[in-house]
């Protein structure tokens, strides 16, 4: 009984993705399910939509830069929070986690108002700054979790043997926390790549990320080529999941230890 319910619910969970993949091959010129016939035509149409290809590349670049910065900042914060005991530590922890707790839309319009009042134009830099704020907490948590499992004695031993602090960290601790660092980077990348709520407020007039470009069609009828684009993004994501699963195990991402 429990088993039947479980598999039915999981079927429902995966249904929207399956439907997108299935519909992308429809031979009809409108979106319907079940799809009619089979064609790859819409993939060709989709790839010819230059503005969507540009947005995809733009999203990749933004997400990659965000991933690198969030991992570096998150790593620094994680080291301080895990390895030092000092007054204000708990408050700092709560402060750095708060972007996860606050509604993303609040952060989005907050940054928009702040930078426009300072006279900044909407630029990719501001967009990346916004993405870094909402992704760094994940990096802090994931790297911090890895770091908690590493005995500080190892690093101290390297120091006693004459290694400078930075070298001891880079050669002893860093290799040991690599799974957390990789997980943090990938998670920051995915979160940034997926984001609409920040990006929609900080979009530059010229460049728009892919999810925002898709979102902006919200009041128009669905077109098969848009479904083909979505199908390609799903396939891209599946490839990423496979990569994560091979490196650290997906369940590690959400704070549940892989068992």
């Amino acid at each position: 009984m429990l088993r039947i319910v479980t598999y039915m619910v999981i079927g429902l969970l995966l249904l929207p993705m399956a439907v997108v993949l299935g519909t992308s091959f429809t031979a009809a010129s409108f979106v319907s399910f079940p799809p009619q016939g089979f064609t790859l035509r819409w993939y060709a149409v989709a790839l010819a939509k230059q503005e969507f290809v540009d947005s995809f590349v733009y999203s990749l670049v933004i997400a990659a830069i965000t991933g690198v910065i969030a991992t570096a900042l998150g790593g620094l914060v994680a080291v301080v929070l895990v390895r030092f005991r000092f007054t204000g530590r708990e408050a700092l922890d709560a402060f750095f986690m708060s972007p996860l707790v606050l509604p993303t839309i609040v952060i989005g319009i907050g940054i928009l108002q702040f930078f426009s009042q300072l006279g900044f134009k909407a630029t990719s830099t501001v967009l990346i700054a916004g993405h870094v704020i909402i992704t760094t907490p994940y990096a802090i948590r994931l790297i911090g979790a890895s770091l908690t499992g590493v005995d500080p004695v190892l690093e101290r031993a390297a120091r006693n043997l004459g290694a400078a602090p930075l070298r001891a960290f880079a050669e002893i601790t860093l290799p040991l926390i690599r799974p957390g660092v990789v997980a943090g980077a990938i998670f920051a990348f995915i979160t940034s790549f997926d984001n609409v709520t920040i990006s929609i407020f900080l979009a530059t007039p010229r460049q728009v990320t892919l999810p925002v470009r898709i979102f902006n069609l919200w009041d128009q009828p669905l077109e098969p080529w848009l479904i083909a684009i979505s199908a390609m993004v799903i396939l891209f994501t599946v490839a990423l999941i496979a990569l994560i699963e091979r490196t650290i195990g997906l369940s590690g991402l959400y704070g549940q230890p892989a068992k």
Binding site: L15, M17, F193, D194, V196, I214, L226, S230, V233, I241
Partner: peptide
């Protein structure tokens, strides 16, 4: 969770 929300909504 790792599939874009916009795309899950399209589904």
């Amino acid at each position: 969770l790792v599939v874009s929300i916009v795309i899950r909504n399209l589904g």
